[in-house]
Design a protein around this nucleic acid. Structure first.
Lengths: 89, 89
DNA sequence: ATAATATTTAGATAGTTGTCTAAATATCTA
DNA sequence: TAGATATTTAGACAACTATCTAAATATTAT
């Protein structure tokens, strides 16, 4: 179920902070890493979870992997969450 | 942080189902329990987490404890989530 | 080709979570 | 006051998560 993955992905503060950073602009892993005190493998683990929830997508640029918000999916999720919270549904 | 508790509370399918049930009407624990295959202590654990996230509140009615959605908090949270997902914020 | 840079994968570990059984607490009824 | 009903607390345990170090993979530059 999609909401499972989504809420799980969002339930970790590190992952939410990653998403906030990506709201401003697309970033490669090493620049995301600057904002955290965890190792690259740990960060990579969180990025994998965000990707599994379809909240972010990646594209390679040379040696770097650029992460960006998956905006269309983001909007779908926002709607699902809205429905979830909507009393009348 | 509030969002931590909220997303954590929402990250479990059992807890989300409890909220969906409470959207229809307030319910005592034993009636909530009918919908699940877990023991009462396990259910109580989930209810405690939902209460900790301020998503539900309780009131005693005789021997029963009635659980209900904490609607005002629910709306605040919906707004926080909306802001979280809102690109421009 | 070799070295350097960027990221992920593998494997291990400590801490957390969801679940259980057993016991405790609270309320109502006979 | 006993006994029944409703719910929570305590304590234990298996499964899962986040983290780490070490190693592997991919790309670029010399």
């Amino acid at each position: 179920m999609t909401l499972n993955n989504t809420f799980f992905a969002l339930s970790d503060p590190t992952r939410r902070k990653i998403l906030q950073l990506l709201k401003k602009k697309d970033l490669p892993v090493n620049e995301i890493a600057i904002n955290f005190d965890i190792t690259l493998p740990s960060l990579s683990h969180h990025l994998t979870i965000l990707k599994g929830a379809d909240l972010v997508s990646t594209q390679r640029r040379g040696q770097q992997i650029i992460y960006s918000l998956n905006l269309s999916v983001f909007e779908e999720i926002a709607e699902e969450i809205y429905n979830f919270f909507n009393k009348s549904k």
